[in-house]
């Protein structure tokens, strides 16, 4: 008896409704979304990224990201043909306001690389969480339960990609949710919505009709830090070997 009452108190009404909509699907907000039908990832086409910073601003607007921290950011690489392993990288304010123009370098190339949580299938961050406050959902999105996180920071240390941070006012771990509140409603992520060139594409690997499959078959695609064996699900097309 006691347990039931406590349970009702814990599941705030709004959350309970949303939970129902996720599982069963309600019209308009989440039409028949079933978690096990999806396996989410993202495709990033480096050759299309123009470094405008739209994705960074969109993410901050959509997800209330604190200043100075980033759920997604853009890096500008400059590598010369002499120092493949020593690129010069900048990301002023995460590339939020774009990048200062650069002129041609006869001895090297410039390019942009957008970064975000890789929503790894075997993620080191969820592995180390001592309490189960971060986890991968049945549809392949790594999320953080911010009502449960103690803010120990172990997951931040465990992420090889620097995608996590401790929220300065909530004092819990925070990172990209792959706009879970959008993709469960049939929308794309805020960063993909705002990307003007299609350099970022949300991908559902379980959907055989998703163009990601055709793309992966016809392009040379990489993931970041494959040696970390994290099962990263953010795929990069045309990625230079100097990118880390």
């Amino acid at each position: 008896m006691n347990i039931t009452r406590r349970h009702v108190l814990l599941l705030l009404p709004a959350a309970a409704v949303a939970w129902k909509s996720v599982l069963a699907g309600t019209p308009e907000s989440a039409p028949n979304y079933t978690m096990t039908d999806h396996w989410w990832g993202m495709l990033i086409d480096v050759s299309k990224c123009i470094g405008c910073g739209n994705c960074v601003r969109a993410c901050q607007a959509e997800n209330d990201v604190p200043d100075g921290f980033f759920r997604t950011w853009v890096e500008e690489y400059h590598r010369t043909d002499w120092h493949l392993d020593r690129p010069q990288v900048i990301s002023p304010d995460g590339g939020k306001e774009g990048f200062p123009p650069v002129s041609e370098d006869p001895d090297g190339i410039y390019f942009f690389v957008p970064k975000l949580c890789n929503h790894c299938a075997d993620s080191p961050c969820t592995q180390v969480c001592p309490v189960g406050a971060t986890f991968i959902t049945p549809d392949g999105v790594v999320l953080i339960d911010q009502k449960y996180c103690m803010g120990c920071g172990y997951c931040v240390q465990a992420c090889p990609y620097g995608c996590r941070y401790i929220h300065p006012t909530k004092h819990v771990a925070d990172k990209c949710t792959l706009c879970y509140h959008r993709i469960t409603k049939g929308l794309t992520t805020a960063c993909c919505e705002a990307c003007p060139t299609g350099a970022r594409q949300l991908a559902d690997l379980k959907n055989p009709k998703d163009p990601i499959h055709e793309f992966l078959r016809t392009h040379t695609v990489h993931i970041l830090k494959p040696d970390m064996a994290t099962g990263a699900k953010v795929f990069y097309n045309d990625l230079d070997g100097s990118v880390r």
Binding site: Q127, V128, C129, P130, V131, G132, A133, Y148, C149, M150, G151, C152, G153, Y154, I166, K170, H171, V172
Partner: peptide, 28 residues
């Protein structure tokens, strides 16, 4: 020191109640 460092020290009991079996820290 661990307790002072936590963002939410009041949630430390979770380490005892729901220890994650793949986490070295949960063993603590």
């Amino acid at each position: 020191p661990l307790l002072f460092h936590l963002g939410h020290p009041e949630r430390c009991y979770e380490m005892y109640f729901t220890p994650h079996d793949t986490s070295a820290m949960a063993m603590f």
